[in-house]
């Protein structure tokens, strides 16, 4: 007879620069099952962890933006594959803390996979939609092309913690931005395991960085960090939106805050839209003389 194996519970950590570090402060948050059992501890990121994540994202940004659209698409598709491969794990983690049970969780994971596939496809197409050949009154070719703005901070809501996180990451990521994402505070487990998806999908270190922690604690630091170029968030209360906008004014960050009901995240027509990409590009216009 074989003895029953001991369970191997995961130690959830942050995901920064392609590694899984513990928080610098050593703080954690307890995660309770819906039946109120404590099932895990996750890192509670501080300002220092955020700074490390931004530094990693900044370091990776040039190479990610300069990678071919084809390669970015391949990598994002690979993320979708790896996420799909972990379907069962994500489903049970989500179901353990999010109301709605297994059936809801399975639907959420499937939608998250689809969202990644969708934006993997947009990597080599968005520029055809957003770029322009401008009619000018002179002997010039005048062309406008979109380029990534830089480091984008993502602040995920508590509703649909995996799907919303993926939906906020994918649009800026596909054009060459690097990401520092703060996952749902109430349901952080999916964020932690999503790091494993990134780590096994050839996502270059630093391109996606994932933090878990308290939104109220980190939002002021995200807002005032001068090396963050854009912010993508959803369903924030008014007070936090104001903090974001005030801090963002300091270095003119682009702030996009959606307000979406839980079922709206499943609306492919709304969420697979290239205009979700547009806030995270900088338009570059070039003039080239033609003719004599």
């Amino acid at each position: 007879m074989m003895a029953e194996r001991l369970a191997v519970p995961k130690t959830f950590k942050l995901y920064i620069g392609g590694k899984f570090p513990r928080t610098k402060s050593g703080r954690t948050i307890r995660v309770a099952h819906r039946d109120e059992r404590i099932i895990a501890h996750v890192g509670r990121a501080s300002r220092d962890d955020l700074a490390a994540a931004v530094a990693a994202a900044r370091g990776a940004q040039g190479a990610w933006a300069n990678a071919t659209a084809y390669l970015r698409g391949q990598i994002m598709y690979r993320m979708a594959e790896m996420l799909d491969g972990k379907h069962e794990e994500f489903t049970s983690l989500l179901a353990s803390t999010v109301p709605g049970g297994i059936r809801r969780a399975r639907k959420e994971v499937g939608a998250a996979v689809d969202r990644l596939v969708c934006f993997a496809g947009w990597t080599d197409k968005f520029s055809h939609v957003l770029a322009g050949c401008n009619p000018v009154a002179g002997p010039y070719d005048n062309v406008t092309v979109p380029e990534a703005v830089g480091v984008t901070a993502v602040i995920a809501p508590d509703e649909e913690p995996l799907l919303a996180l993926v939906s906020l990451i994918a649009p800026p990521l596909c054009v060459g931005n690097t990401i520092v994402a703060l996952g749902s505070g109430a349901h952080p487990l999916a964020t932690c395991v999503f790091g494993e998806v990134c780590a096994t999908s050839d996502v270059p270190p630093g391109v996606v960085n994932l933090l878990t922690g308290m939104r109220s604690e980190l939002i002021p630091h995200i807002a005032h960090h001068r090396d963050i170029d854009a912010i993508h968030a959803a369903n924030l209360p008014k007070s936090q939106r104001q903090v974001l906008r005030a801090g963002a004014a300091e270095n003119i960050k682009r702030v996009t805050v959606h307000k979406l009901a839980a079922d709206a995240w499943y609306d492919d027509n709304a969420c697979h839209n290239p205009w979700l990409i547009e806030p995270f590009v900088e338009m570059k216009t070039t003039w080239r003389p033609v003719g004599a």
Binding site: L50, A51, R58, H221, H224, H225, R226, D227, G247
Partner: peptide
């Protein structure tokens, strides 16, 4: 200042 800085600062 309380703000984290950017490289270009």
């Amino acid at each position: 200042t309380g703000s984290d800085t950017a490289k270009y600062d």
